[in-house]
């Protein structure tokens, strides 16, 4: 067995033992169920709490409302939960010194970064897929006739954005050596990208399109072609974050 497989296995078993896997699974399962249910029952709830004499007219919920919940909850809450759980994945090991014995045993530093990224990505992918397919199943059940063109692209884009956050956490780990630094770096990046989104010139390339415009794509107000450049830019950012992390880690005194 090579070092990558060994360390990747260790990362997955650590996720299971430290309850990261359970928390991610439960949170995303809960979102997956709540998205369609909220869309379905929200009008009834609102009608129920309105005082007598006041009537509000709400459009009958559709499949799009269910996906609107999905593209609101996952970027807002789901990604935050993931970032909090994985904030210390490299930083904590470096500050505690658990990696020292493994590195002096010949574990390449590049392997540490890549195995951590792969394992975290796998957990993110699994949790995200769970959330997506649960939402999908309920949505099809409640609104069998609903059409959702562009859904695969919108869902894929949000997933890629999650990968970018994970790669940022790794760079933060090697830069700051504590999980707060990682969270600040990641939060700072998202804040910066959101600010840049104000400039019309940046909107066409900004990775923020990926988590924000999924719903617009589904409702037909944003073209699918608008995702291409942001996806390429995000891919490039992920690559640079990972290479940057490896570059800095290789030169880091431990």
């Amino acid at each position: 067995m090579n070092a990558f497989t060994a360390f990747f296995k260790k990362e997955l078993s650590e996720a299971a033992h430290t309850h990261k896997l359970t928390v991610m699974g439960l949170v995303f399962l809960l979102f997956g169920m709540m998205n369609p249910l909220t869309a379905k029952v929200l009008p009834d709830i609102l009608a129920g709490v309105m005082p007598d004499g006041i009537t509000i007219t709400l459009a009958t919920p559709t499949a799009l409302d269910s996906w609107a919940q999905f593209f609101k909850n996952v970027p807002q809450m789901g990604l935050i939960v993931m970032v909090l759980l994985y904030g210390g994945m490299l930083a904590n090991e470096l500050s505690r010194g658990t990696l020292t014995q493994l590195l002096t045993r010949g574990l390449p530093r590049k392997t540490v970064v890549l195995a951590k990224f792969s394992a975290a990505s796998l957990v993110w992918t699994a949790a995200y897929a769970l959330c997506f397919f649960v939402t999908y199943a309920y949505t099809v059940y409640f609104w069998p006739e609903g059409s959702t063109t562009g859904l695969p692209l919108a869902a894929f884009s949000l997933w890629v954005f999650g990968l970018m956050l994970l790669s940022t956490l790794l760079l933060g780990g090697v830069l700051f050596k504590n999980s707060y630094g990682c969270l600040l770096l990641t939060g700072g990046l998202v804040a910066l990208l959101s600010l840049l989104n104000i400039l019309p010139a940046m909107q066409a390339v900004n990775p923020m399109v990926l988590p924000s415009n999924g719903m617009a794509l589904l409702s037909g107000t944003f073209p699918a072609s608008g995702f291409v450049t942001p996806l390429l830019v995000t891919g490039a950012i992920i690559m640079s974050m990972l290479s940057g992390t490896i570059f800095l880690f290789n030169r880091k005194a431990l």
């Binding site: 033992h17 430290t18 505690r96 010194g97 658990t98 014995q101 493994l102 045993r105 010949g106 574990l107």
Partner: peptide, 19 residues
């Protein structure tokens, strides 16, 4: 420093696999 959730054998296995 070790991974607290592991047992001695598991830790040595990890080290051996890495080597």
């Amino acid at each position: 420093e070790f991974y607290g959730y592991m047992r001695a054998k598991e830790y040595l296995r990890l080290c051996g696999e890495i080597a």
